[in-house]
Write a protein that binds this DNA or RNA. Structure first.
Lengths: 198, 198
DNA sequence: TTGTAAGGTTAGGTATAACTAACTTTTAGG
DNA sequence: CCTAAAAGTTAGTTATACCTAACCTTACAA
């Protein structure tokens, strides 16, 4: 199911197979038995590694969020122009997205309406934090005149996040293997053309 | 929960409340008991109107798909320029989207990986059909020189669908009430700027 | 060698969802 | 007003998910 997993701990295998299931089969198939079957153990053994199924999901999200936030900080530091900052940020995000097989955007969508406060808070914090980082760069771009002034920075930020979400959606429904965003440069270019001046 | 439902049949109420639950609470809360509770009846009564829970979902999808496809045909007939055709098509899609509270894009996402062949087929047919309609207009635009030639029409079509998906995503995670796409004209304009020449 | 901890196992408890059967109530048409 | 169908009820059955308890097995450190 997931390539080169032999040398991983069972705990790590559980999170990876779990993420793969969420993307390929949906949350409703994210069950202890399904994971256990793919691992060749019993469902009860899962609970030797995690207290609950929710803890597995938390683990998957935490890894993504921390890596994504870290890359965003680095992009803002390294980029010299507004365009470059946004490019670096998007590219880093795409890298993390590919590595985690798109599991977190799927979870974002499917768990955002969960009554579970812990999930909601974690995901909302991530989206808000990420949104504020992007809209700050957008405002900078509007001040220097490279980005259209009539656009609402928050809307543009959501357009960025939404566009990545849309790519994951397209990937998920295509059922294809391989990369989620096949042509990152073309993707970034379409997004930019929508918001940059002339 | 849903405004002005008093004069509707129980069957219609079930599909409307069902759609509302899918969007606001997620598929995992789409249960006979949840719907029944909100309607003030028992779960067993649901099965007087529908053979199964899946049949309710089918009903929701069917209505959306047929109305969306119909509007697409009308948009192509009525629009004189390529830009106008795309505008009419998007506006009609947005109208249907608002009326159905965004349930179908959510279902598209959550059911696309279902092992259920009937769902998969219905949703894939819709996406493929819609995609081919849009990419045909895009090709027309590229021929007349109004749309960038270097863009792949199918990619652009998926960008359209994905952007609507993204708006539903933003709506869903915001937890807000009201319209899914608050500024349709600004939304359509961002999309167009990304693909039109200069 | 022996005891302990990690990581398995089987069996089962509890909750909940889908759906059904048998019954009652409501409603609308003749 | 009567009756039959529609639409509700209660009280299940069945299946499945999460999780626990009690029990094995093996590795390895004292």
């Amino acid at each position: 199911m997931v390539e080169s997993m032999e040398n991983l701990s069972t705990k790590e295998k559980i999170t990876r197979i779990g993420a793969e299931i969420i993307v390929k089969e949906g949350l409703r198939k994210f069950t202890a038995k399904n994971i256990a079957d793919k691992l060749g153990i019993t469902d009860a053994a899962i609970f030797k590694h995690f207290k609950s199924m929710d803890e597995i999901i938390m683990d998957i999200i935490d890894k993504y969020v921390s890596r994504c936030s870290q890359s965003a900080i680095e992009a803002v530091e390294k980029g010299t122009t507004v365009k470059e900052k946004l490019e670096l940020l998007l590219k880093a995000h795409i890298d993390v997205l590919e590595e985690t097989r798109g599991a977190v955007p799927v979870l974002c969508f499917e768990l955002s309406r969960s009554e579970d406060v812990a999930f909601k808070e974690k995901l909302n914090n991530f989206v808000e934090n990420y949104k504020s980082k992007i809209s700050q760069i957008i405002r900078e771009g509007q001040a220097e005149g490279s980005i259209k002034e009539d656009l609402d920075p928050e809307d543009v930020a959501m357009f960025f996040i939404g566009s990545i979400q849309a790519k994951v959606f397209a990937y998920v429904i295509s059922g294809k293997e391989g990369r989620i965003i096949e042509h990152p440069d073309q993707f970034i270019s379409i997004i930019f053309n929508g918001i940059m001046k002339q």
